[in-house]
């Protein structure tokens, strides 16, 4: 591996097999690059093109398709109509990410440091519920938490919650649903980064009279930052685009940007509007992640992810 990474080293350029060696890194990354090109860049370009199209003037329902008109106003219009749902999605996803981190970190920590021989078993148990389709799991929550279901009915009977209390169809239900679904995606990378920490480093910190708090804050936490970063990406990005939880567990005032895109695409058949929304979301996320990566410093992350 090392020699490929150093392919541009001047010494190599004078070598006999220099061409092969110089091309090797590109050849190795080609499948990945091709994948990105076909499944990311080209669709994204197509989406941008479609967002800039307008329908051909029609009478009645006669459909003449779309024409390309550089209609940049589409983006403004999309933002004006749906900024509430866009910001709500970002807001939900932020809360979800923080919650999964708070809940997931101790779990990952415990498994990594105290899991012993059973580490794999614990990880497997953690993933077990996720062998069931997530739509089915969300529907199950709907059943369990319904107003007349076993949870709410009993809580009301014991006067823990006032009568008429409900959890479904609320913001809380949607956020909790996404958090539940996203949890393993936070725990797994955290576990990997915590597991990788050299235990002798922890020992050394203790030898140098660091108390438990300092060991954690000054040694373990900084060393697990790559895991946090990866967990953030795997949780935040899907959470922003989620629409199933809002559909199944939500009520009024919980519509997310994914639901809006689905509506514009499949019900309203307004492809330019749907494309513009999807493009805004995607570019917004990309920029956000790039800035975030700069701030946290991605150098070490490459080693972990």
């Amino acid at each position: 591996m090392e020699q490929y990474v150093r392919a541009d080293h001047p010494v190599l350029e004078t070598g006999k097999t220099r061409l092969g060696k110089r091309l090797a890194p590109y050849a190795l990354t080609a499948p990945g690059a091709l994948w990105l090109l076909i499944f990311f860049l080209i669709p994204m370009g197509a989406m941008l093109v479609l967002a800039l199209e307008t329908p051909v003037q029609t009478t009645g329902f006669v459909s003449r398709g779309y024409q390309f008109t550089w209609h940049f106003g589409q983006f403004g219009e999309a933002f004006r109509l749906y900024h509430t749902q866009l910001f709500r999605s970002l807001n939900y996803a932020t809360i979800v990410t923080i919650l999964t981190l708070v809940v997931g970190y101790p779990v990952a920590y415990w498994i990594a440091f105290y899991g012993g021989r059973r580490k794999t078993t614990y990880l497997f148990l953690l993933l077990l519920p996720f062998f069931v389709s997530f739509v089915i799991r969300s529907l199950a929550w709907q059943f369990i938490l319904s107003d007349d279901g076993i949870v709410i009915r009993n809580l009301e009977r014991w006067h823990i919650v006032p009568s008429g209390f409900h959890i479904l169809s609320t913001t809380t239900a949607v956020i909790a649903g996404i958090t539940y679904n996203a949890l393993p995606f936070m725990i797994l990378p955290l576990y990997v980064s915590l597991e990788k920490i050299d235990r002798s480093v922890v020992e050394a910190a203790k030898d140098l009279y660091a108390n438990k708090r300092d060991v954690f804050l000054k040694v373990i936490l900084p060393l697990s930052v790559p895991g946090i970063f990866a967990g953030f990406l795997l949780t935040f990005v899907p959470a922003v685009g989620d629409y199933v939880n809002a559909e199944i567990l939500g009520g009024t005032g919980t519509t997310m940007i994914g639901n809006v895109i689905q509506f514009e695409f499949l019900t309203n058949n307004d492809y330019p509007m749907a494309s513009a929304l999807a493009f805004i979301l995607m570019v917004g996320l990309l920029i956000g992640i790039l800035i975030y990566g700069r701030v946290l410093g991605t150098r070490q992350i490459e080693e972990y992810v």
Partner: peptide, 28 residues
């Protein structure tokens, strides 16, 4: 009922429609 929620199908349909919409300019 329910099948509506097997929502991944929606994505597939959407993609097909999307790709077709890019190239669909011919009249009826």
């Amino acid at each position: 009922e329910v099948l509506r929620y097997a929502g991944t199908g929606v994505g597939a349909a959407g993609l097909a429609a999307f790709l077709a919409a890019c190239g669909a300019k011919s009249p009826s």
